[in-house]
Design a protein around this nucleic acid. Sequence first.
DNA 1: GCCAACGTTGGC
DNA 2: GCCAACGTTGGC
Length: 139
Amino acid sequence: MAYWLMKSEPDVFSFTDLTNKPLEEWHSVRNYAARNNMKAMKKGDKAFFYHSNIGKEIVGIMTIVNEAHPDSTAEIVDGKIVWECVDVEADKPLPTPVTLAQIKADPFLQDMALIKLSRLSVSPVTAAEWDYICKLGGL
DNA sequence: GCCAACGTTGGC
DNA sequence: GCCAACGTTGGC
Protein backbone atom coordinates (compact mmCIF):
# COMPACT_ATOMS: atom_id res chain seq x y z
CA MET A 1 0.00 0.00 0.00
CA ALA A 2 1.23 3.47 -0.89
CA TYR A 3 0.73 6.82 0.80
CA TRP A 4 -0.04 10.22 -0.72
CA LEU A 5 -0.81 13.81 0.09
CA MET A 6 -3.56 15.73 -1.69
CA LYS A 7 -4.25 19.45 -1.40
CA SER A 8 -7.47 21.35 -1.52
CA GLU A 9 -8.44 24.88 -0.62
CA PRO A 10 -10.93 24.43 2.21
CA ASP A 11 -13.17 27.28 1.07
CA VAL A 12 -13.66 25.28 -2.14
CA PHE A 13 -13.67 21.76 -0.72
CA SER A 14 -12.67 20.91 2.83
CA PHE A 15 -12.14 17.71 4.78
CA THR A 16 -15.43 18.38 6.53
CA ASP A 17 -17.13 18.51 3.14
CA LEU A 18 -15.62 15.13 2.35
CA THR A 19 -16.86 13.56 5.58
CA ASN A 20 -20.39 14.59 4.58
CA LYS A 21 -20.23 12.61 1.36
CA PRO A 22 -20.04 8.89 0.65
CA LEU A 23 -17.17 9.53 -1.74
CA GLU A 24 -15.78 12.30 -3.90
CA GLU A 25 -14.22 12.48 -7.34
CA TRP A 26 -10.89 14.31 -6.91
CA HIS A 27 -11.52 16.29 -10.07
CA SER A 28 -10.05 19.40 -11.68
CA VAL A 29 -6.37 18.52 -11.34
CA ARG A 30 -4.74 20.06 -14.43
CA ASN A 31 -1.11 19.28 -13.83
CA TYR A 32 0.69 16.35 -15.43
CA ALA A 33 2.86 15.46 -12.47
CA ALA A 34 -0.15 15.45 -10.15
CA ARG A 35 -2.14 13.40 -12.64
CA ASN A 36 0.65 10.86 -12.96
CA ASN A 37 0.68 10.47 -9.20
CA MET A 38 -3.05 9.80 -9.26
CA LYS A 39 -2.61 7.22 -12.01
CA ALA A 40 -0.12 5.43 -9.77
CA MET A 41 -2.64 5.12 -6.94
CA LYS A 42 -4.19 1.80 -6.07
CA LYS A 43 -7.51 1.07 -4.46
CA GLY A 44 -6.98 1.04 -0.69
CA ASP A 45 -4.06 3.49 -0.70
CA LYS A 46 -4.21 6.19 1.96
CA ALA A 47 -3.79 9.94 1.50
CA PHE A 48 -3.42 12.95 3.76
CA PHE A 49 -5.89 15.78 3.15
CA TYR A 50 -4.02 19.10 3.24
CA HIS A 51 -5.77 22.46 3.45
CA SER A 52 -3.88 24.95 1.28
CA ASN A 53 -4.11 28.74 1.61
CA ILE A 54 -6.46 28.62 4.59
CA GLY A 55 -5.16 26.65 7.54
CA LYS A 56 -2.09 25.29 5.77
CA GLU A 57 -2.27 22.04 7.68
CA ILE A 58 -2.89 18.34 7.26
CA VAL A 59 -6.33 17.81 8.73
CA GLY A 60 -7.29 14.23 7.95
CA ILE A 61 -6.81 10.92 6.23
CA MET A 62 -8.72 9.55 3.28
CA THR A 63 -8.83 6.29 1.38
CA ILE A 64 -8.56 5.82 -2.38
CA VAL A 65 -11.73 3.94 -3.30
CA ASN A 66 -11.51 4.02 -7.10
CA GLU A 67 -8.40 4.16 -9.26
CA ALA A 68 -7.83 6.75 -11.99
CA HIS A 69 -10.66 7.29 -14.44
CA PRO A 70 -11.57 10.15 -16.82
CA ASP A 71 -12.27 13.42 -15.01
CA SER A 72 -15.94 14.24 -15.57
CA THR A 73 -15.16 17.96 -15.35
CA ALA A 74 -12.49 17.90 -18.07
CA GLU A 75 -13.17 19.21 -21.54
CA ILE A 76 -13.17 16.77 -24.41
CA VAL A 77 -10.35 17.10 -26.95
CA ASP A 78 -10.51 15.01 -30.13
CA GLY A 79 -13.23 12.88 -28.61
CA LYS A 80 -11.17 12.04 -25.52
CA ILE A 81 -11.12 13.30 -21.98
CA VAL A 82 -7.46 13.97 -21.36
CA TRP A 83 -7.52 14.43 -17.60
CA GLU A 84 -8.06 11.72 -15.04
CA CYS A 85 -8.77 11.51 -11.36
CA VAL A 86 -9.38 9.07 -8.53
CA ASP A 87 -12.28 8.76 -6.10
CA VAL A 88 -11.67 9.16 -2.37
CA GLU A 89 -13.60 8.75 0.84
CA ALA A 90 -12.92 10.23 4.28
CA ASP A 91 -11.18 7.87 6.69
CA LYS A 92 -10.65 9.88 9.87
CA PRO A 93 -9.58 13.35 10.94
CA LEU A 94 -6.27 13.95 12.69
CA PRO A 95 -7.02 14.73 16.36
CA THR A 96 -4.37 17.46 16.09
CA PRO A 97 -3.83 18.93 12.61
CA VAL A 98 -0.19 19.02 11.52
CA THR A 99 0.70 22.47 10.22
CA LEU A 100 2.97 23.44 7.37
CA ALA A 101 5.06 25.42 9.86
CA GLN A 102 5.60 22.24 11.91
CA ILE A 103 6.60 20.25 8.85
CA LYS A 104 9.00 22.96 7.68
CA ALA A 105 10.57 23.12 11.13
CA ASP A 106 11.06 19.35 11.45
CA PRO A 107 14.38 18.00 10.17
CA PHE A 108 12.83 14.59 9.56
CA LEU A 109 10.28 15.99 7.08
CA GLN A 110 12.54 18.20 4.96
CA ASP A 111 12.38 15.95 1.91
CA MET A 112 8.62 16.04 1.56
CA ALA A 113 7.33 17.18 -1.82
CA LEU A 114 4.97 19.44 0.11
CA ILE A 115 8.02 21.57 0.90
CA LYS A 116 10.30 20.92 -2.06
CA LEU A 117 7.63 21.10 -4.75
CA SER A 118 5.21 23.43 -3.08
CA ARG A 119 2.93 23.81 -6.08
CA LEU A 120 2.39 20.10 -6.65
CA SER A 121 -1.13 19.27 -5.51
CA VAL A 122 -0.85 15.48 -5.43
CA SER A 123 2.40 14.03 -4.13
CA PRO A 124 3.78 10.79 -2.70
CA VAL A 125 4.55 10.32 0.99
CA THR A 126 6.96 7.68 2.29
CA ALA A 127 5.82 5.11 4.87
CA ALA A 128 8.24 6.63 7.38
CA GLU A 129 6.88 10.14 6.82
CA TRP A 130 3.34 8.79 7.03
CA ASP A 131 3.87 7.15 10.41
CA TYR A 132 5.73 10.16 11.73
CA ILE A 133 2.99 12.62 10.73
CA CYS A 134 0.26 10.34 12.12
CA LYS A 135 2.04 10.46 15.48
CA LEU A 136 2.37 14.24 15.31
CA GLY A 137 -1.35 14.35 14.56
CA GLY A 138 -2.20 12.37 17.66
CA LEU A 139 -3.01 8.98 16.13
C1' DG B 1 -1.84 42.12 -2.34
C1' DC B 2 2.77 40.71 -3.39
C1' DC B 3 6.01 37.73 -5.19
C1' DA B 4 8.78 33.39 -5.94
C1' DA B 5 8.52 29.09 -8.18
C1' DC B 6 7.30 26.71 -11.85
C1' DG B 7 4.44 25.08 -15.85
C1' DT B 8 2.78 26.27 -20.46
C1' DT B 9 2.65 28.67 -24.76
C1' DG B 10 4.26 30.45 -28.91
C1' DG B 11 7.74 32.90 -31.82
C1' DC B 12 11.99 32.16 -33.85
C1' DG C 1 14.70 22.92 -29.59
C1' DC C 2 15.47 27.25 -27.17
C1' DC C 3 13.76 30.86 -24.52
C1' DA C 4 10.92 34.96 -23.35
C1' DA C 5 6.38 36.02 -21.99
C1' DC C 6 2.70 34.90 -19.49
C1' DG C 7 -0.51 32.42 -16.22
C1' DT C 8 -1.22 29.89 -11.94
C1' DT C 9 -0.28 28.20 -7.37
C1' DG C 10 0.34 28.99 -2.83
C1' DG C 11 3.03 30.95 1.11
C1' DC C 12 3.73 35.19 3.35
